[in-house]
């Protein structure tokens, strides 16, 4: 299996007044292709910082981060933007869709920044929207959709560029448990189809969907082990499961 993410000695230090805060303190870990990893930890453990670095929104203070064999830890803003565009699919807790744009435009937005031609883009976006079961909502605005549907749109947007990793930050945090289950079922399916998924959460039962659980505490990896009792949920409906 090829290694997608390799972190070696990653630190992140914030300067708060006179004090240096070590948000990450020497993180070493690798994620292979088609792994399903949950990053867990209490607040303040550094999981958000780690996610930002893995997601190329931020760069580490020191250490090496290789994404698909490319050293991204010292890239400049524009290079990082390109990596985010091509290699990473974000799914956020609060969905983060553009409120004024319809579903189709939201999903094709990464492709616009990727410089894909209009006709190809539309085709790819429709495909991704079909993948999450929202083909009949393609011209709806986000505020015309339920929370679960919005998160599906966000997932379609994350998938549309066929990224190396799907990076989900508390993807069910704003959803009721039934809808949350549906979304997790969708992630399970996406994983079976070969996607590499990194899930950041503080909920045990969400983390149990993953194959591997990494626990952070005080900026260090506290535990890194396979999930023993994997939770396999069936979606409450068939929506989105191809």
């Amino acid at each position: 299996m090829s290694i997608i993410i390799r972190l070696a000695g990653i630190t992140k230090v914030y300067q708060v007044g006179d004090e240096s805060v070590h948000a990450l303190d020497g993180i070493n870990l690798s994620v292979e292709k088609n792994e399903y990893v949950a990053i867990m930890g209490p607040s303040g453990s550094g999981k958000s910082t780690l996610m930002n670095i893995v997601g190329c929104l931020d760069t580490p203070t020191s250490g090496l981060y290789e994404l698909n064999g490319t050293n991204v830890s010292e890239m400049n803003d524009n290079q990082l933007a390109k990596v985010r565009n091509k290699e990473i699919g974000f799914v956020f807790q609060t969905f983060n869709l553009l409120a004024r744009s319809d579903i189709l435009h939201n999903v094709e937005l990464p492709l616009i920044y990727g410089g894909i031609s209009s006709s190809e883009r539309k085709h790819m976006a429709r495909e991704a929207i079909a993948r999450v079961g929202l083909s009949d909502r393609i011209h709806h605005k986000p505020n015309e959709l339920s929370g679960g549907q919005r998160q599906r749109v966000a997932i379609a947007r994350a998938l549309v560029t066929k990224p190396s990793i799907l990076l989900a930050d508390e993807p069910t945090g704003n959803l009721d448990s039934k809808t949350g289950n549906d979304i997790m079922a969708l992630f399970d399916t996406l994983h079976k189809e070969g996607n590499t998924i990194v899930l950041v959460t503080h909920e045990e039962d969400i983390a149990e969907h993953a194959h591997r659980e990494i626990r952070l505490r005080d900026g260090k990896v506290e535990r890194d082990e396979p999930v023993k009792n994997r939770r396999i949920v069936q979606a409450s409906s068939n929506v989105g499961v191809a």
């Binding site: 997601g55 929104l57 524009n78 985010r84 565009n85 983060n96 553009l98 937005l109 920044y113 947007r157």
Partner: peptide, 16 residues
């Protein structure tokens, strides 16, 4: 601001 953050997260460059 949020919109700008979203756009940047999914790959918009400064120039965009």
């Amino acid at each position: 601001t949020k919109e700008i953050g979203i756009r940047k997260a999914i790959g918009a460059r400064r120039a965009n």
